[in-house]
């Protein structure tokens, strides 16, 4: 799911810090943003905007962090509005709802662990690529 891959060049100290911060940004926002799922994405997006003219290594990791947040946003938003509808409309918790919430909790937990791991590795200058998001980022970010 996650692999350390070679990068075309050796990033400098400043680049390592910024690239690592792009992941930390989504974690800090995760804590501040609960239960509103959009906050993470906005925070990561603005961090990317601030660094969009930065070096290839920094831009690459900003985009990977942003893409992972975008897909979490989709599944978390659905769970959020489902919860709102139970609180203000349906009033009944169903097996389907609990199963969905558990699924997104598991996916969020995996994403959380992967984000911490990637932030640490990136800070050390290692290039970490995630399944799907890594390849997609290669398509989107040009040298």
């Amino acid at each position: 799911m996650i692999a350390v891959r070679p990068f075309p060049y050796k990033p400098g100290e400043h680049e390592k810090e910024k690239a690592s911060n792009s992941y930390l940004m989504s974690l800090i926002a995760l804590i501040a943003g609960l239960p509103l799922p959009i906050v993470n994405l906005i925070a990561t997006f603005f961090f990317y905007l601030g660094n969009r003219h930065s070096t290839y290594f920094v831009r690459w990791h900003c985009i990977q962090a942003l893409l992972s947040q975008a897909s979490l946003l989709l599944m978390n938003s659905y769970g959020f509005w489902w919860t709102v509808s139970i609180l203000f409309r349906e009033g009944r918790v169903t097996n389907d709802y609990i199963a969905y919430i558990l699924t997104i909790v598991l996916f969020n937990a995996v994403d959380f662990a992967a984000t911490i791991y990637t932030a640490i590795q990136t800070r050390k200058g290692r290039h970490v690529e995630w399944l799907f998001y890594g390849d997609l980022t290669h398509l989107l970010v040009k040298k």
């Binding site: 897909s71 097996n95 389907d96 609990i98 199963a99 699924t103 996916f107 399944l131 799907f132």
Partner: peptide
Amino acid sequence: QALLLVALFFGMYHTLRQVDWV
């Protein structure tokens, strides 16, 4: 890879739905 992730998500959801959580 996208298909794999989507299948993983819905596979997990479908499996968890089998439990009578309520």
